[in-house]
């Protein structure tokens, strides 16, 4: 699936798209698949499937623990890739792999990208791999026609945004604030200014993540971003109220 044209097409139907995130193998692979099913049924436009890693330095407590629990229950890369493939072949939305670079490095970067491509995965987000360190990865992604998602942060200078945008495909992931995933974000004028700065650096759609938790946050983002990313909040809801509640939550956002 060609990511950017898919997003542009969807954006003609909706004023903001929804991207959700799950940790594969948490609480189990069976439940991971059920959550994906519910999310797709509830109208999610794109999904980020995180392959758990033992040292997830960019993740906050909720996702960090989900990573750990998945690994403790024995999740392997093979299991994760199989589930990702099953999801991508079953559902008609794009799926991205999110993980840390060591997972690709140990698997073999070109083997990993080839595997993603043959599994109908659309792209990847690797938060600890800046383009300066990622030339092998970028070449392999290009070869396999996959979208390497680039990340902007509030500390990224406009020069650097331009530099990153040159490597980007699909969309740009804009981190809403300093800090790790799952903490509170203040939806303010400052955030709007930052997002307009992000738009200036790229013609691609932008996704905003970190701390989005309800309909109000998403309303705020309309007109300022093309994709809202929900990460930790669905994990919290699943932990408190079960998988069914996740579907209700996603429905309530739109």
């Amino acid at each position: 699936m060609e990511l950017e044209s898919y997003l542009q097409r969807k954006l003609k139907e909706k004023d903001i798209l929804l991207m959700t995130h799950i940790v594969l193998g948490y609480p189990s692979f069976k439940e991971s698949f059920q959550i994906i099913e519910k999310m797709v049924a509830a109208g999610v436009d794109i999904m980020e499937l995180q392959i758990p890693f033992s040292e997830p330095i960019a993740d906050g407590p909720v996702i960090l623990r989900a990573n750990q629990k998945a690994l403790e229950s024995g999740a392997t890369i093979q299991d994760c890739l199989s589930l990702a493939q099953k999801a991508a072949e079953t559902f008609d939305i794009p799926f991205l792999i999110m993980t840390y670079y060591n997972i690709l490095y140990k698997y073999g970067v070109s083997e990993f990208t080839a595997k993603m491509a043959s599994s109908s995965i659309t792209g990847a987000i690797i938060p600890d791999l800046p383009p300066e360190e990622g030339s092998t990865y970028l070449t392999c992604m290009e070869k396999s026609n996959l979208a390497p998602i680039m990340i902007f942060s509030p500390t990224t200078t406009s020069d650097r945004m331009q530099y990153l945008a040159d490597f980007a495909k699909g969309f740009i992931y804009c981190i809403a604030r300093k800090g790790v995933t799952g903490e509170k974000t203040t939806f303010s004028n400052k955030l709007s200014d930052y997002l307009s700065g992000c738009h200036n650096a790229t013609s691609l759609p932008i996704a905003v993540g970190f701390g989005i938790k309800d309909r109000q946050d998403i309303q705020f983002l309309k007109g300022k971003a093309e994709i809202a990313v929900i990460g930790s909040q669905t994990i919290r809801i699943m932990e408190q109220d079960g998988i069914k509640a996740v579907e209700d939550f996603i429905l309530s956002l739109q």
């Binding site: 938060p127 600890d128 800046p130 360190e133 990340i151 500390t155 990224t156 200078t157 300093k178």
Partner: peptide, 23 residues
Amino acid sequence: MITSRYYGQFGGAFLPEILVATF
């Protein structure tokens, strides 16, 4: 640009974007 330094094949600066300016 990130300045990183390698010792043979080891080292580097595999930084999350949020820390690039700090480094």
